[in-house]
């Protein structure tokens, strides 16, 4: 409860108020989307140790779940967002055998799975269903204000899941599984069930985020919503701040995505140099993320 009041609520209030003072709403929306995705990575990587390089697969599937629901069933946008979340979970279930793999093998297999989903969606033979490679236009449901509000609700849900994992015996059991699955199993933890639940929760939030993104952007191609940049950014932001914490990914997104946009707006010609150096410095000196600055001193970071 303390974490909800001190971290989640202020975060939501800030992002709810910001559109009133800053007009680039799409930038704020992207912040919210990356907060959701970074926390989604946090759920699966921070608490179970599975690095999801193909995390964008859930996001893109959610976006197309939204699009198909709107195009073919003429559903309302909020309903389509729920379907997007369900599509994310369904894909997570389908891909759950990947959890048998670990380390780099899982990361590569997950990336391959995301590519497979992309090419399935972009297949011209499915033009009647997904519009194949030709892109979708959902201008009928376009409503930036409501889509932004929906993104905040998805962020609230995601933060709620992370707070639960951080404070519950379930989350503790997950971390035990991450550290040593054999010992955790011997202690009575159902390793497979734990991992699958975390995996599906992670898929759910990415699917919902994809649905909300499709709602806001409304005109997109498979390459737009299955871009590996989403996975890379979400992973980098989560790692930058520090995983297995509530605040780490938030710090990561706000700091790194903030700097990313600041450089992009002011000195785009030096973008890659500055951003690359920044990440190199962090990897070399703060491999456990920014929160390690505090934890090294013995401070407890939520």
């Amino acid at each position: 409860m303390r974490h909800l009041l001190l971290i989640v609520l202020p975060l939501l209030v800030i992002f709810a108020l910001l559109p009133g003072v800053y007009q680039n709403h799409l930038l704020l929306f992207n912040f919210v989307i990356f907060l959701v995705l970074a926390q989604g990575v946090n759920i699966i990587y921070g608490f179970t140790g599975y690095l999801p390089f193909g995390y964008v697969g859930f996001f893109g599937a959610g976006a197309y779940g939204f699009a198909i629901t709107v195009m073919h069933y003429h559903a309302s946008a909020p309903m389509a967002v729920l379907v997007a979340g369900a599509v994310g979970v369904a894909l997570g279930l389908f891909l759950s055998p990947l959890l048998r793999l670990s380390g780099a093998y899982f990361a590569i297999a997950n990336m391959a799975a995301a590519l497979a989903v992309l090419h399935f969606v972009a297949n011209p033979a499915l033009e009647d269903i997904t519009r194949g490679p030709y892109g979708v236009s959902l201008t009928g449901t376009f409503n930036p204000t409501l889509a932004y509000a929906a993104a905040l609700i998805v962020l609230a849900l995601t933060m709620g899941i992370v707070v639960f994992l951080k404070n519950s015996s379930f989350g503790l059991a997950l971390q035990a599984v991450r550290e040593d699955p054999v010992s955790a199993s011997m202690a009575g933890v159902n390793v497979v069930r734990m991992r699958v639940i975390a995996w599906l929760a992670s898929a759910l939030v990415a699917g919902l985020a994809g649905g909300v993104y499709a709602w806001y952007v409304s005109v997109f191609f498979p390459d737009n919503v299955f871009s590996s940049d989403f996975s890379i950014f979400a992973i980098v932001f989560a790692l930058f701040g520090g995983v297995a914490t509530i605040t780490g990914p938030i710090i990561g997104v706000v700091a790194l995505y903030g700097v990313y946009n600041l450089i992009g707006f002011t000195t785009p010609q030096y973008f890659q140099l500055i951003y690359g150096l920044l990440i190199m410095v962090l990897v070399l000196f703060l491999p456990a993320g920014l929160v390690s600055l505090a934890t090294r001193r013995g401070w407890r970071v939520p």
Partner: peptide
Amino acid sequence: QSNTATASSLYNQ
């Protein structure tokens, strides 16, 4: 940088 999410916020900017 060929990034569509970045492109969207830059267009808005």
